[in-house]
Write a protein that binds this DNA or RNA. Structure first.
Lengths: 226, 226
DNA sequence: ATAACAGTTCATTTTGCATTTAAATATGAT
DNA sequence: ATCATATTTAAATGCAAAATGAACTGTTAT
């Protein structure tokens, strides 16, 4: 077990391989050449690293003509990478170039079946500020006021809370290092936004795009400029 | 963000440091010398590695006379390590020496506020087999029969399920790669076992010892030889 | 006071393994 | 058939960082 952990750790630990894994984090499948570009190294080198990751079972591969697409072998890989990303390194320059700060997977993505990323965290903040939900230690709860608001959006909290599944739960966001909203309520929100075309998902990636309608609605409902 | 991940990854990726982190996984605080023993290397070398982990904020330290005790700086570190451990490495020799298989933290430990490890996984299996709980996709639920059984143990499911907190939830076990029981029911079970002296915890470690009484009871209730 | 122990620092050596160089294979396009 | 592109394999090279050796600071025990 300990050996196994060391193997995984040193596998992920190499900077080039770490970059490969990071590039695949949104769930896409990339070719060797694309990965070489992302990691800024040669195709031979990438090939070597990929073969190690393949052999260890971290990646899976799919042939398509002269291309080979690589992606995570299972979801545990992605969750481990995200867990590692939540570790804060001290002395780190916080003022990273905000260039990539608002783009792609960090901005708006799915996490299991609910929304994550900057948008989700800010939305959760607004729910808290408006007292639609309250935080109590490690838990979230929907207020009476919240029940009404969600009902107006077509989400019936009472019905959701009858189900086995936990209604509402804080979920740590690796990109924001703050909590967003999970549980059946989080899932219902995502579903509603997708149904009403505020956002669109795609199979390849966990990144989510916000439609024009979505932009309007996010502002209308949450005063969020997305 | 990507850089940050690479930093963390390569920090954890070195075999000696990986061993250090693994040794601290149960929540204990160890001295430099103890860590050097665990990693089978020299004190100088350990000191070098520790200082890197300290500077990065993965470890915290506490002086006590001529000793310095090292432990994780926060719980995210432990969760990241555990997430990495759940990644399966293919071609791995499954028949590891079962010597350390049944000992210490892998056998019986706490996970947040419920029981984890081999004992917890087997107990969960038995709940499922006896239909005290059932599994439905990604969720657990308590059956009518289960409610009765837990009531006999002094655990009132109806009262627990009124609370905000999720009653029952599967939680992936890194050592067993299978699910054990979390949620308020899992917490109530742990509490009961501790109160009735089936098990004892200690502040230093997440490992849990099973008392003589506990051994009898585990057999009596679950036909588990612990 | 002296000795033993715990841990750190710094200069030096070693080495694992990533990278580079070079060449081969395989698929698709013209 | 020929050429371009995608990827892999093998051997040679290079280097960052891990380990070692020696010396030093601080604490506890006798």
């Amino acid at each position: 077990m300990e050996d196994h952990f060391r193997q995984v750790a040193s596998l992920i630990g190499d900077p080039t391989r770490a970059t490969i894994l990071w590039s695949l984090l949104d769930g896409r499948a990339l070719t060797a050449t694309e990965l070489a570009m992302a990691a800024d190294t040669s195709p031979q080198n990438i090939s070597m690293h990929i073969s190690k990751l393949l052999q260890a079972g971290l990646l899976q591969t799919k042939h398509q003509g002269r291309h080979r697409y690589f992606s995570f072998a299972n979801k545990e890989i992605a969750y481990a990478i995200e867990a590692m990303a939540t570790i804060t390194v001290r002395n780190e320059i916080i003022n990273e170039s905000s260039k990539d700060e608002n783009s792609g997977i960090k901005y708006c993505r799915t996490c299991y079946d609910h929304l994550a990323g900057k948008v989700a965290v800010e939305m959760t903040d607004i729910f808290l500020r408006r007292k639609l939900i309250i935080q109590d230690g490690n838990e979230f709860a929907v207020t009476r006021k919240g029940k009404g608001w969600f009902f107006d959006q077509g989400i019936q909290v009472d019905i959701l809370s009858q189900a086995r599944r936990s209604l509402i739960r804080p979920c740590l966001d690796w990109s924001e290092r703050r909590y967003h909203l999970a549980g059946s309520l989080g899932a219902a929100l995502l579903k509603k936004m997708e149904n009403e075309d505020w956002i669109r998902r795609n199979k390849q990636s966990r990144a989510v795009i916000i439609t024009g309608k979505g932009q309007k609605k996010f502002y209308e409902f949450f005063k969020l400029t997305v």
